[in-house]
Computed example of a mutant assay.
Amino acid sequence: MDVLLAEDDLETAGFVADGLRVLGHNVTHATTGDAALKAATDGSFDAVILDRMLPGIEGLEVLRELRARSNRVPVLVLTALGGISDRVDGLDAGADDYLVKPFAMVELAARLNALARRSSAADAVTRFEVGDIVLDLLRREVTRAGRPVLLQPREFALLEQLMRHAGRIVTRAMFLERVWGFHFDPQTNIVESHLSRLRTKLREGFADDPIETIRGSGYRIRVDG
Protein backbone atom coordinates (compact mmCIF):
# COMPACT_ATOMS: atom_id res chain seq x y z
CA MET A 1 0.00 0.00 0.00
CA ASP A 2 1.27 3.51 -0.85
CA VAL A 3 0.59 5.75 2.14
CA LEU A 4 0.97 9.50 2.53
CA LEU A 5 1.77 10.42 6.13
CA ALA A 6 1.10 14.08 6.98
CA GLU A 7 2.57 14.58 10.45
CA ASP A 8 4.79 17.42 11.72
CA ASP A 9 5.88 15.68 14.93
CA LEU A 10 9.02 13.85 13.81
CA GLU A 11 8.95 11.33 16.65
CA THR A 12 5.38 10.30 15.88
CA ALA A 13 6.08 10.30 12.15
CA GLY A 14 9.12 8.08 12.60
CA PHE A 15 7.19 5.62 14.76
CA VAL A 16 4.32 5.38 12.26
CA ALA A 17 6.50 5.27 9.14
CA ASP A 18 8.79 2.58 10.58
CA GLY A 19 5.82 0.48 11.68
CA LEU A 20 4.13 0.70 8.28
CA ARG A 21 7.34 -0.07 6.39
CA VAL A 22 7.89 -3.17 8.50
CA LEU A 23 4.43 -4.29 7.32
CA GLY A 24 5.47 -3.78 3.70
CA HIS A 25 3.86 -0.40 2.98
CA ASN A 26 5.51 2.46 1.10
CA VAL A 27 5.40 5.71 3.08
CA THR A 28 5.76 9.28 1.84
CA HIS A 29 6.17 11.83 4.64
CA ALA A 30 4.92 15.44 4.56
CA THR A 31 5.52 17.80 7.49
CA THR A 32 3.22 20.70 6.50
CA GLY A 33 -0.34 21.07 5.26
CA ASP A 34 0.85 22.68 2.04
CA ALA A 35 3.21 19.78 1.31
CA ALA A 36 0.53 17.24 2.15
CA LEU A 37 -2.01 18.86 -0.18
CA LYS A 38 0.51 19.01 -3.03
CA ALA A 39 1.62 15.39 -2.52
CA ALA A 40 -1.95 14.08 -2.31
CA THR A 41 -2.94 16.07 -5.39
CA ASP A 42 0.10 15.16 -7.50
CA GLY A 43 0.58 11.57 -6.35
CA SER A 44 -1.44 8.37 -6.34
CA PHE A 45 -1.88 7.01 -2.82
CA ASP A 46 -3.95 4.17 -1.43
CA ALA A 47 -4.49 6.05 1.83
CA VAL A 48 -3.58 9.25 3.68
CA ILE A 49 -2.82 9.52 7.41
CA LEU A 50 -3.51 13.15 8.27
CA ASP A 51 -2.69 15.06 11.44
CA ARG A 52 -5.10 17.91 12.19
CA MET A 53 -2.62 20.41 13.64
CA LEU A 54 -0.20 20.86 10.74
CA PRO A 55 1.91 23.97 10.04
CA GLY A 56 0.63 26.05 7.15
CA ILE A 57 -2.72 24.74 5.96
CA GLU A 58 -4.53 23.08 8.88
CA GLY A 59 -5.26 19.38 8.44
CA LEU A 60 -9.03 19.64 8.01
CA GLU A 61 -8.58 22.38 5.41
CA VAL A 62 -6.28 20.05 3.49
CA LEU A 63 -9.00 17.42 3.67
CA ARG A 64 -11.77 19.79 2.58
CA GLU A 65 -9.69 20.96 -0.37
CA LEU A 66 -9.01 17.38 -1.47
CA ARG A 67 -12.72 16.56 -1.39
CA ALA A 68 -13.55 19.80 -3.20
CA ARG A 69 -11.19 18.62 -5.96
CA SER A 70 -13.07 15.28 -6.09
CA ASN A 71 -10.06 13.44 -4.67
CA ARG A 72 -11.52 10.30 -3.10
CA VAL A 73 -8.36 8.88 -1.51
CA PRO A 74 -9.26 7.28 1.85
CA VAL A 75 -8.17 9.58 4.69
CA LEU A 76 -7.56 8.57 8.29
CA VAL A 77 -7.30 11.56 10.61
CA LEU A 78 -4.73 10.93 13.35
CA THR A 79 -4.87 13.56 16.09
CA ALA A 80 -4.81 14.37 19.78
CA LEU A 81 -8.21 16.10 19.44
CA GLY A 82 -10.53 13.37 20.62
CA GLY A 83 -13.76 15.04 21.67
CA ILE A 84 -17.07 14.10 20.05
CA SER A 85 -17.29 17.50 18.33
CA ASP A 86 -13.71 17.07 17.05
CA ARG A 87 -14.57 13.67 15.59
CA VAL A 88 -17.74 15.01 14.00
CA ASP A 89 -15.84 17.95 12.49
CA GLY A 90 -13.23 15.61 11.03
CA LEU A 91 -15.72 13.19 9.55
CA ASP A 92 -17.89 16.01 8.24
CA ALA A 93 -14.85 17.44 6.47
CA GLY A 94 -14.56 14.20 4.51
CA ALA A 95 -12.46 11.86 6.64
CA ASP A 96 -13.10 8.13 6.29
CA ASP A 97 -11.85 7.28 9.77
CA TYR A 98 -10.61 9.07 12.90
CA LEU A 99 -8.02 7.76 15.35
CA VAL A 100 -7.03 9.59 18.53
CA LYS A 101 -3.49 9.80 19.94
CA PRO A 102 -2.08 7.96 21.81
CA PHE A 103 -2.79 4.89 19.70
CA ALA A 104 -1.56 1.35 19.15
CA MET A 105 0.30 0.69 15.90
CA VAL A 106 -1.61 -2.55 15.41
CA GLU A 107 -4.92 -0.64 15.47
CA LEU A 108 -3.66 1.97 13.02
CA ALA A 109 -2.55 -0.78 10.62
CA ALA A 110 -5.88 -2.58 10.94
CA ARG A 111 -7.84 0.61 10.24
CA LEU A 112 -5.72 1.30 7.15
CA ASN A 113 -6.38 -2.21 5.86
CA ALA A 114 -10.11 -1.74 6.46
CA LEU A 115 -10.06 1.53 4.51
CA ALA A 116 -8.27 -0.17 1.62
CA ARG A 117 -10.83 -3.00 1.53
CA ARG A 118 -13.71 -0.55 1.69
CA SER A 119 -12.21 1.54 -1.10
CA SER A 120 -11.67 -1.50 -3.33
CA ALA A 121 -15.24 -2.67 -2.83
CA ALA A 122 -16.62 0.80 -3.52
CA ASP A 123 -14.60 1.11 -6.72
CA ALA A 124 -16.23 -2.00 -8.18
CA VAL A 125 -19.35 0.02 -9.04
CA THR A 126 -18.96 3.65 -10.11
CA ARG A 127 -22.47 4.59 -11.23
CA PHE A 128 -25.89 4.08 -9.63
CA GLU A 129 -29.30 4.78 -11.14
CA VAL A 130 -32.49 4.54 -9.10
CA GLY A 131 -35.69 5.95 -10.55
CA ASP A 132 -34.82 9.33 -12.05
CA ILE A 133 -31.73 9.82 -9.83
CA VAL A 134 -28.24 9.09 -11.14
CA LEU A 135 -25.13 9.12 -8.93
CA ASP A 136 -21.69 9.01 -10.57
CA LEU A 137 -18.86 8.18 -8.16
CA LEU A 138 -16.06 9.04 -10.57
CA ARG A 139 -17.39 12.47 -11.48
CA ARG A 140 -18.84 13.01 -8.00
CA GLU A 141 -22.04 14.15 -9.68
CA VAL A 142 -25.73 13.63 -8.96
CA THR A 143 -28.60 14.37 -11.31
CA ARG A 144 -32.35 14.02 -10.98
CA ALA A 145 -34.31 13.81 -14.23
CA GLY A 146 -31.22 15.17 -15.91
CA ARG A 147 -30.94 18.20 -13.60
CA PRO A 148 -27.71 18.54 -11.57
CA VAL A 149 -28.06 18.29 -7.79
CA LEU A 150 -25.18 19.91 -5.90
CA LEU A 151 -24.37 17.99 -2.71
CA GLN A 152 -21.87 18.38 0.08
CA PRO A 153 -19.54 15.37 0.70
CA ARG A 154 -21.60 13.85 3.53
CA GLU A 155 -24.87 14.36 1.66
CA PHE A 156 -23.33 12.62 -1.34
CA ALA A 157 -22.17 9.74 0.87
CA LEU A 158 -25.64 9.37 2.43
CA LEU A 159 -27.24 9.19 -1.01
CA GLU A 160 -24.62 6.68 -2.13
CA GLN A 161 -25.53 4.38 0.76
CA LEU A 162 -29.24 4.68 -0.02
CA MET A 163 -28.64 3.89 -3.69
CA ARG A 164 -26.30 0.98 -2.93
CA HIS A 165 -29.15 -0.49 -0.89
CA ALA A 166 -31.96 0.51 -3.25
CA GLY A 167 -35.28 -0.92 -2.10
CA ARG A 168 -33.81 -1.91 1.26
CA ILE A 169 -33.78 -0.07 4.57
CA VAL A 170 -30.62 1.75 5.64
CA THR A 171 -30.56 2.15 9.41
CA ARG A 172 -29.19 5.07 11.38
CA ALA A 173 -26.43 2.81 12.71
CA MET A 174 -25.42 1.89 9.14
CA PHE A 175 -25.16 5.56 8.20
CA LEU A 176 -23.10 6.35 11.30
CA GLU A 177 -20.63 3.56 10.58
CA ARG A 178 -20.36 3.81 6.80
CA VAL A 179 -20.58 7.57 6.32
CA TRP A 180 -19.05 8.92 9.55
CA GLY A 181 -16.98 5.93 10.68
CA PHE A 182 -18.65 5.79 14.11
CA HIS A 183 -18.90 2.38 15.73
CA PHE A 184 -21.04 3.89 18.49
CA ASP A 185 -23.95 6.32 18.67
CA PRO A 186 -22.67 9.85 19.42
CA GLN A 187 -26.19 10.83 20.57
CA THR A 188 -26.50 13.70 18.11
CA ASN A 189 -28.91 14.42 15.26
CA ILE A 190 -26.07 14.39 12.74
CA VAL A 191 -27.74 11.78 10.50
CA GLU A 192 -31.14 13.44 10.57
CA SER A 193 -29.82 16.94 9.88
CA HIS A 194 -27.74 15.81 6.89
CA LEU A 195 -30.60 13.71 5.53
CA SER A 196 -32.93 16.69 5.84
CA ARG A 197 -30.61 18.81 3.69
CA LEU A 198 -30.21 15.97 1.20
CA ARG A 199 -33.98 15.57 0.86
CA THR A 200 -34.48 19.29 0.38
CA LYS A 201 -31.95 19.36 -2.46
CA LEU A 202 -33.39 16.27 -4.15
CA ARG A 203 -36.95 17.65 -3.95
CA GLU A 204 -36.16 21.08 -5.39
CA GLY A 205 -38.31 21.45 -8.48
CA PHE A 206 -40.09 18.13 -7.87
CA ALA A 207 -43.34 17.23 -6.11
CA ASP A 208 -42.21 13.99 -4.48
CA ASP A 209 -39.62 13.03 -1.88
CA PRO A 210 -37.53 10.11 -3.22
CA ILE A 211 -36.46 9.10 0.31
CA GLU A 212 -38.88 7.26 2.58
CA THR A 213 -38.71 7.34 6.37
CA ILE A 214 -39.49 3.87 7.73
CA ARG A 215 -40.59 4.70 11.23
CA GLY A 216 -38.57 2.88 13.86
CA SER A 217 -36.29 1.27 11.27
CA GLY A 218 -34.46 3.75 9.05
CA TYR A 219 -34.65 5.15 5.54
CA ARG A 220 -35.12 3.79 2.04
CA ILE A 221 -34.88 5.28 -1.45
CA ARG A 222 -37.91 4.74 -3.65
CA VAL A 223 -37.01 2.38 -6.49
CA ASP A 224 -39.85 3.68 -8.65
CA GLY A 225 -38.60 7.27 -8.52
Results as ranks from 00 to 15, higher is better:
Y98T: 04
S120G: 13
W180F: 15
L138E: 14
R222C: 06
P102F: 05
L37S: 07
A95F: 05
A40D: 03
A104P: 00
D97C: 00
T41W: 03
D92M: 12
M174R: 13
D185T: 02
D8R: 02
H194D: 10
V3F: 08
T32W: 01
T188H: 07
E7V: 02
I221E: 04
E141Q: 15
I190E: 09
V3I: 15
E129P: 03
T31K: 09
R144P: 01
D97S: 12
F156S: 00
R147K: 15
L91H: 00
D89A: 14
A6T: 01
H183A: 06
G94W: 00
T32E: 06
I49A: 07
R222M: 09
L66E: 06
R197N: 12
R215F: 13
A17D: 03
L198E: 02
T188I: 09
D185K: 06
G181H: 05
M1Q: 03
D132Y: 09
A110R: 11
V75I: 11
L23R: 15
L195H: 05
I49K: 03
V16C: 03
L158Y: 07
G83N: 08
L37Q: 03
G14S: 08
L115S: 02
A47P: 02
M174F: 11
G131W: 11
L91V: 12
I49W: 06
D34R: 10
R203L: 08
E129C: 07
R67E: 10
